[in-house]
Design a protein around this nucleic acid. Structure first.
Lengths: 193, 193
DNA sequence: CGCGGGTTTGATGATGCTCAAGCCCGGTGG
DNA sequence: CCACCGGGCTTGAGCATCATCAAACCCGCG
């Protein structure tokens, strides 16, 4: 149940066995079924969720009821509405499971305590955030400059899993395309092979 | 010379006077003139720069020699090519001054030492990064869903300074628009007033 | 005074969206 | 077990937004 977490932390910092055992005690394990929500837009996001198994997505809903995917989270990733989680304000995102999933939840206070108890955990969080930030910057750049096809090709080469495990229309939304456009893009790509 | 830095740190964490004095010693003050570059694409980014005075921008250059603005940094902001700075790889961004500017530079090693010497500084860095990450997420959302006019209006209400202190064509680039389109958008907005 | 970069304006065209319909396929109930 | 239903993916036609190309304008600066 904590394999992915141990792996993820181990990639960034080193914890002793005792530290990791202590670390575990701050998390709340939770199973969630496909299509269930971990967070509803408008609620306060009280958890930072680590995905041990499954996939989650966060998305906003605009005035027309149109969903807009912000992030996918596979095994070994974190997901939350960071703004709401940190400030305690209302969330603008909804977080939902795309498969039956197993999560490890960290509340705001547990997170603070954990960072105090194990300083390396703060480093771990900072390092994760740094990588996430870099990834977002390149995503912005691609969103602003690339064509539909380029965006899709970049995505599939970086994250091949996305294509196989996630419904097309959600991928389209993540890329800022309509489902119709993504369908046509895929057709074009296949025709050329 | 350290007013903005003191203010920025003070907004996130509390440092004693001695700690802040110690903190200062890790930075290298540097003045840079308008149009000079702090970092050239392809070089290794050895500094994380804090802007005491002036404005900088980071941008990429694509195959066609077209510049694409990633970020602006006003007084009190940080700017760097985070990926290059952290990994030591070649940078993909160029960083350039838009006005005569005063910077405080932090090398990779100085940053590590500083975080060790003053743990609160690591918290400060993490908190900054959290906010930057949240801002980037909303920027992505806007980039993917908003029209040209919506993007521009959001930007001007959030950062009124940008309009007055930054050339139009760079604002256009930041928003992923051509200069012509931004010009027309502004015209439309003015006609309606 | 003239040069040059930046902004504006115009005409045209391409990319991707909207609206609408058909298809494929898996799940459900008779 | 089969027929039906519905969601998601595909296909098509027309359209809107924004990009491109080109030229004129404006204004600060040498």
């Amino acid at each position: 149940m904590y394999e992915q977490l141990e792996k993820s932390i181990g990639e960034k910092v080193t914890l002793s066995t005792e530290e990791f055992e202590l670390c575990k005690t701050f998390f709340i394990p939770k199973k969630i079924r496909k299509k269930q929500t971990l967070l509803l837009e408008g609620d306060v996001c009280t958890y930072n969720a680590f995905v041990e198994k499954g996939i989650l997505r966060s998305y906003t809903t605009d005035e027309k009821g149109h969903e807009n995917v912000i992030q996918f989270a596979f095994e070994g990733w974190w997901i939350t509405d960071l703004s709401s989680f940190l400030t305690g304000g209302n969330s603008t995102y909804t977080i939902e499971a795309l498969e039956d999933s197993e999560l490890l939840l960290l509340t705001t206070t547990a997170r603070e305590s954990l960072m105090n108890a194990i300083p390396a955990f703060e480093s771990y969080q900072r390092l994760l955030l740094q990588n996430a930030y870099i990834a977002l910057q390149t995503r912005i750049n691609s969103a602003l400059t690339a064509t539909a096809e380029e965006k899709y090709l970049k995505l599939t080469t970086y994250y091949p899993d996305i294509v196989t495990r996630i419904p097309q229309h959600m991928v389209a939304s993540y890329l800022g395309l309509t489902p119709e456009t993504l369908s046509r893009v895929r057709k074009q790509i296949n025709l050329r092979k």
